[in-house]
Amino acid sequence: MTRRIKIAVMASASLLLLGSCGGSEPDDNQVVDSIDTLEEDFDVDLFESPEVDYHLPSPLQVASIFKKSGLEYNTGVTNSADNSGNYNDELSQHLNFGVYSADMAYCVLNEQANEGRIYLGVISTLAAEIGMEAVFANEDLMDRFELNIEDKDSIEILMIDIHERTEEYMEENDMQHQSAVHFAGAWTEGMYLGVYDYEHNGSKEGLGAQITEQMAILGNIIKGLKDPRNDGMELGWVVTDLENIQSTFDSFGSVSAYYEDESADELTLSDEEYSTLGELIKALRSKITNG
């Protein structure tokens, strides 16, 4: 936002300079039109929300919901912090910023503070690479983390602070469209952790229901990724994979039956459907974390 204001002010200044230095004399109408156009762009872009909008849950809330549904902590399943150096392009940095945010939430909620601290370091580094270093600057988050390492509630509050500061920074700097990319990474990682636990620790009913419930968000994530302002990031393969997950899910017999039955409460997939969905999620997660 700030950037756009600056651009608009600079454009006005340029008009002034052109007006005073130019040899030709613009007529009054021409000048008025230019200013009007600038003002119109300013208003439309900055202070008019879309007719239809959505709110996506924070990684901490998603991790909390999965935990309440019976998700257990599994050592070594999260994306290794050692991989962070492999993310050299803008897209993999944004996606894995989301992946590591989900991993940090997963560790903190499962009282794995040391792991959580490592992920905080990785997230700070990635944030600097994607132009959000200010979120982690001017406050030693690592010190706060160290100081409260034994206090799960304080660490969770620290995570909420980071989330809020990220949200504010992105809004102030006209970067909100990129939050869908972070969320795509976080969603994929959250689903992966759920699928892993579901497959390895017995098919838990609550967890299975939560995996299907999280599918409700996918449509809006895809919509967010398709924002034209994200065009420079070559998101095509991510969108294709997520759309494939969505259409495969929609084609499941259990899903059709659920939507046809108005009295149906919870959606439960068959084992085969869970397996199909799980394979697609694992494949996408692998592509994202392999950079």
Binding site: F47, E48, S49, V52, H163
Partner: peptide, 27 residues
Amino acid sequence: RYDGSKVTYFNFKTYKQVKEVEIYLFN
């Protein structure tokens, strides 16, 4: 526990408008 915010901006016009925000409720 805070989860996020959504600021909906608009300009009053001579006609009625509706702006909609979708929110998920889980588990």
